[in-house]
């Protein structure tokens, strides 16, 4: 079983995001970088699939600049076997161009399953995995919280939560791209021997510029700004009747939601 995990390095979710003074982007100076939260679940599921089969390979595929290698090594420390870094130094990619370069790399490796997080916690675009699936004409299920390999290893059964607590169950032929939600398995901790081994696991480097073949981003970033500060809440006091009347009035006149 050969499994790829599309892994993105994103700012730690606790990072206080600052905008550059010319509003041209995010000021990255004090950012602590982590594996995109949902991608970490994808790594865990990939390792479990490989363990269930008993043989195979888990490959971490990342489009990013050199600092992303640190996050790739963390995934290798968890147990992945090797990495492919598509170096994007000097380029600005959007979801489309990211999908283009990934779709160029994945077929060469003949993966059975490609796992990704359901979205990146930085831009929340939710487009790259779908884009790759479209370009490759592979089936794609989003988001999933459970994966099971069929007995003949030719398909997977996946569970997808839909609104209201309902679950959809799909049987999907391979190869496929599956986008992992926070699932039933917490990502494992890297063991110390794992961390030590990860330092020497191979990471192949490709150049994004060589893979774009003239494709350009469909999105242009014009301006960045932070959301407005959250206003302090209001606490209404008094008799229940009064409070209710006041609440309705505020919802209608101030919040304008009813």
């Amino acid at each position: 079983m050969k499994i790829a995990v599309l892994l993105k390095q994103t700012p730690d979710t606790e990072t206080k995001i600052k905008i550059k003074s010319d509003a041209s982007g995010v000021d990255e100076t004090d950012i602590k970088w982590i594996i995109n939260t949902y991608d970490e679940y994808a790594v865990e599921e990939a390792l479990r699939l490989k363990e269930a089969v008993g043989t195979g390979e888990v490959v971490i595929v990342t489009a990013g600049i050199k600092r992303a290698v640190e996050s790739m090594r963390q995934a290798l420390a968890m147990g992945a076997d090797r990495g492919i870094l598509i170096d994007t130094e000097g380029l600005t990619l959007d979801s489309y161009t990211a999908a283009v370069i990934l779709a160029k790399v994945l077929p060469n490796e003949k993966f059975d399953i490609v796992l990704a997080g359901k979205q990146a916690v930085d831009d929340d675009c939710v487009q790259v995995a779908h884009g790759v699936a479209t370009l490759l004409d592979w089936p794609c299920v989003w988001p999933i919280e459970h994966i099971e390999l069929s007995g003949d290893k030719k398909s997977v059964m996946v569970v997808r939560p839909v609104s209201g607590g309902t679950k959809e169950v799909f049987e999907v032929g391979l190869p496929t791209i599956l986008c992992c939600d926070k699932g039933e398995h917490d990502p494992r901790y890297a063991s110390l021997p794992g961390i030590m081994k990860a330092k020497t696991k191979p990471i192949q480097e490709l150049k994004a510029a060589d893979l774009l073949a003239g494709e350009t981003p469909k999105v242009k970033w014009v301006n960045f700004s932070l959301p407005p500060d959250r206003q302090a809440g209001k606490i209404l006091k008094g008799e229940p009747e009064q409070v209710c009347a006041e609440l309705v009035k505020l919802l209608r006149e101030e919040a304008k939601v009813i």
């Binding site: 398995h185 917490d186 990502p187 494992r188 901790y189 890297a190 063991s191 110390l192 021997p193």
Partner: peptide, 20 residues
């Protein structure tokens, strides 16, 4: 080294990783 992935009572969780 210390263990990781134990719950409040000390029982191992699904991602338990023993120290070395």
């Amino acid at each position: 080294t210390g263990d990781k992935g134990r719950d409040r009572n000390g029982s191992p969780l699904s991602n338990f990783e023993e120290g070395v």
